[in-house]
Design a binder for these strands. Structure first.
Lengths: 217, 217
DNA sequence: TAGATTGTTAATCGATTAACAATC
DNA sequence: TAGATTGTTAATCGATTAACAATC
């Protein structure tokens, strides 16, 4: 009720949004003030029409004919639209190599993502800290999630444990799960799940390299 | 010329392939011999028609009405189709936290991906080994890629260095780049590029959590 | 004013879904 | 045989692209 449109937005559009924001911040840093959809399209290798349509979902201020969009305002609109100005607390389960990387990654703050604690079953690392963030015992996961109203759980455990962790998180009332374990996970309908699917990326690359088949686009 | 079809295949289809393979291997391990498109569809939460169409791109042997597909054969067909039985040598540039994780990850072998060396500019780690794989000086990157005919380069350097590394790789004759740096990279047209775009995943999740807008599907 | 760019509507393209004959 | 499932063709749906009036 606070945003101007309720038209359904496609996932494709949504996933281009971070690209716009990232590039806009870059050119803003280089001293640019205005940018046209044509220029944006060229850099991101899409068409100007796509850019204009995408931006129309997020922009409150309008672009000016012949000049384009005022970059600072455009970034602000896009970030607000994406919810990056809305802090989302998260926990991460499984503090192995990948878990440590994510726990230490400062870039998530740009997206409003705040990982506040890690969980692991290895008692050797429980009660230690990584990047100032406490590693807690997996036994405390459910209680922590429900008492702190955590919305997002990140799963970086070995694949055989991923389903169990997901089930625990769901029971504790998590709203969304970001799964890095290379396995299919089933959760109740009210929990949204996003698989960070490196296998899918590799699939495309692999096909490009082998080139025994025609891939579209 | 060795595969049975030349119909263009959609990226969507391609990205579902690893899911089929992964699940099929799981049920094969549980002792199943045959599976129907209906069963596959249910588990992966898509429709049977999609499954049948997807599989029809890759299968040489046909499914049997009333019974379904013979799992071992189906896995073999899919893996061949995806080029997983075709070893693709790769190098990884930027041996920080994420680079180390990828260099140590044994799962890539399942996709025919073989990372044979890492490169970094930090002389403290040059000539050490991770997971039995040598870390070499970034100065030797171009020579190594061209003399060894490396097809794939993985980029895990900080974002400000990503473009430079990509340019070097392209000059050295790399065919494809898998970019983990959170930035847009420009390469010549004959180099294919895949951005491992965690920001895009987060975009979707973030939107789901904030829910001030309707996202399709 | 002329020309470039916006924002939006209409046309096209392609992927998903539904329907169904063939088959075991 | 009857029923389930395959493989494929036709219909639908949705996203991208093209076209264009409005505007600075």
């Amino acid at each position: 009720m606070e945003d101007k449109k309720r038209t359904p937005i496609s996932i494709a559009t949504l996933q281009r949004m971070p690209n716009y924001i990232s590039y806009l911040k870059q050119v803003l840093g280089e001293g640019c003030e205005y940018i046209s959809s044509v220029a944006l399209a060229e850099v991101l290798q899409i068409t100007p029409t796509v850019v204009k349509k995408d931006l129309s979902f997020a922009t409150i201020t309008e672009g000016k004919p012949k000049i384009g969009f005022y970059i600072p305002e455009l970034i602000k609109d896009l970030e607000h639209f994406m919810g990056y100005d809305n802090v989302k607390n998260a926990v991460i389960v499984g503090i192995g190599h990948l878990g440590s990387v994510l726990l230490s990654y400062p870039g998530f703050a740009n997206y409003g993502l705040n990982i506040i604690a890690g969980f692991d079953k290895n008692q050797d690392i429980v009660n230690t800290k990584i990047n100032g963030k406490e590693i807690m015992s997996i036994d405390k996961l459910e209680e922590f999630v429900s008492t702190n109203g955590i919305k997002l759980g990140i799963i970086t455990v070995p694949k055989q444990f991923a389903q169990g962790v997901a089930t625990k998180l769901a029971k504790a009332g998590i709203e969304a799960i970001w799964n890095f374990a290379p396995t299919h996970i089933i959760v109740p309908n009210d929990v949204v799940i996003k698989n960070e699917d490196m296998a899918a990326s590799l699939a495309w690359l692999s096909k490009q390299l082998v080139k025994n088949f025609i891939v579209k686009k």
